[in-house]
């Protein structure tokens, strides 16, 4: 309940922020290229059909920190809304030396309620799929993320910002006669903290 209230408040604040800001900076057709690199922290691992196996930040069987990088391209559909795509790479070690990697390919929708020309505040939602790999296992997984990104534009075209939020990767199986995969349905949540360099045109 508390979480919902917080989310609603944040969305309301973001919605009314434009009213207190200068006139919008972007126009339909403007484009933004972004390069992102940083770290990610494992937040939770939830088993949808076996909650007794759930692991949270404190006991998840992964190293405390991994890495992320991505490139994205977006075009403004309206003054506040930009749509495009993002190609990323994530990695983190489990407790064994084995590396977990994910290559998300997503559609990216960004809402920019604050845009002064020097400062942008952007809320992005990504939806797509991620090719994930760990040991011998490979899987094409549904992937979604919501991130918040404040950015400062040093020049007319180049900006630098910080991005964080939540990234979720799901592993979903149908009931299978050979292996009991259904009990392995799970969602991995990661928190990114990344530096973003943007070029707008």
């Amino acid at each position: 309940m508390k979480k919902c209230t917080t989310i609603v408040i944040v969305l309301l604040v973001l919605a009314v922020l434009p009213a207190f800001c200068a006139a919008g900076y972007y126009e339909t057709g403007d484009q933004v290229f972004s390069f992102r690199a940083g770290v990610d922290f494992p937040a939770f691992l939830s088993f949808l059909n076996d909650p007794s196996r759930n692991q949270s930040f404190s006991d998840i069987h992964m190293q405390r920190v991994g890495g992320i990088a991505s490139i994205s391209y977006q075009g403004y559909l309206t003054q506040n809304l930009a749509l495009g795509g993002e190609l990323g790479y994530q990695f983190i070690n489990s407790l064994t030396p084995s590396l977990y990697t994910a290559v998300p390919i997503t559609a990216k929708l960004t809402y920019v309620p604050v845009q002064t020309g020097l400062f942008d505040l952007a809320l992005s939602a990504n939806l797509g799929m991620a090719f994930i790999k760990y040991d011998d296992g490979k899987y094409l997984a549904p992937y979604a993320s919501i991130t918040l990104q404040p950015s400062f534009y040093i020049t007319e075209s180049w900006g630098i910002g910080i991005e964080s939020g939540i990234m979720a990767t799901a592993e979903l199986y149908t009931k299978n006669a050979t292996y009991d995969k259904y009990s392995n349905n799970a969602v991995l949540g990661m928190i990114p903290l990344a530096l973003v360099v943007s070029y707008r045109h």
Binding site: H61, L95, S98, G137, Y173, T174, Y179
Partner: peptide
């Protein structure tokens, strides 16, 4: 994504069961 892909076993399940080296 709605289909079972190439993973032989649950990837997240294997991570959850991983033990320290």
């Amino acid at each position: 994504c709605s289909c079972n892909a190439d993973a032989q076993d649950g990837i997240f399940s294997a991570i959850a069961d991983s033990a320290p080296d």
